[in-house]
Nucleic acid binder design. Sequence first.
DNA 1: AAGCGTTATGCATGGGAAAATATAACGCAA
DNA 2: TTGCGTTATATTTTCCCATGCATAACGCTT
Lengths: 113, 113
Amino acid sequence: MSNNYRLHGRLWIEGPEGTFLGYGRVVLLERIREHGSISAAARSMEMSYRHAWKLVDSMNRQSLHPVVEKSTGGRFGGGARLTKAGDEAIDCFWSAYRDFKRFLIDRSRQLDL
Amino acid sequence: MSNNYRLHGRLWIEGPEGTFLGYGRVVLLERIREHGSISAAARSMEMSYRHAWKLVDSMNRQSLHPVVEKSTGGRFGGGARLTKAGDEAIDCFWSAYRDFKRFLIDRSRQLDL
DNA sequence: AAGCGTTATGCATGGGAAAATATAACGCAA
DNA sequence: TTGCGTTATATTTTCCCATGCATAACGCTT
């Protein structure tokens, strides 16, 4: 009955190839939506473009409909936009994540150590 | 509404110094109880003795009462036994872990992707 | 045609965690 | 007193993953 201990955890959505959506991936999607490109999104969260690109590729491959649409060339070199499926993926994950956080807090109170 | 996606996660109990109990640590405690020594327990789960020892040390330091009692020397070189606090720690974690698994399964059904 | 900032991709590099290795101390038994 | 299998701990090595770097293609602008 001490409050020195608390439950912690990680949550992700697993798809056909392994991890589909996790905390970092969803933040990345939000940053892409905000900045309009994978590279700017990666820079904004101090992630290498290489890694960010791989994550996006992994999500797109595992999603029925791509979550990110990309284009190369043009006035600003190209960019990336979230699709409707991308927006929904973000909502879907955060919804489960909220419930998870609630579970952790509630269940922490019942810890008998 | 596809069943191609499932929630996965990890759960652990955080104490004063960081991780106190997690899946691997609890299995280690069970193996120590079963085999009577840290080294035999580590071998049984293909973990280095070094690592196993560190985990036990971390748990003992963070627990009000030690979870493992150790002795050196003697007929069989020494050994390790679980204390009552150790048994209780195991039960405490598995109990939360069961609830967590239930949460993952239940919440997976509500995933709308 | 040249320049730009993207996407796209291979390959080398680095850093952190786990394992491997090496030693010492312990205490009972033969 | 020697040997054994443990606990205990420092040091070295290994391994994996993210990063860094290099390069090419793209397409709009000037």
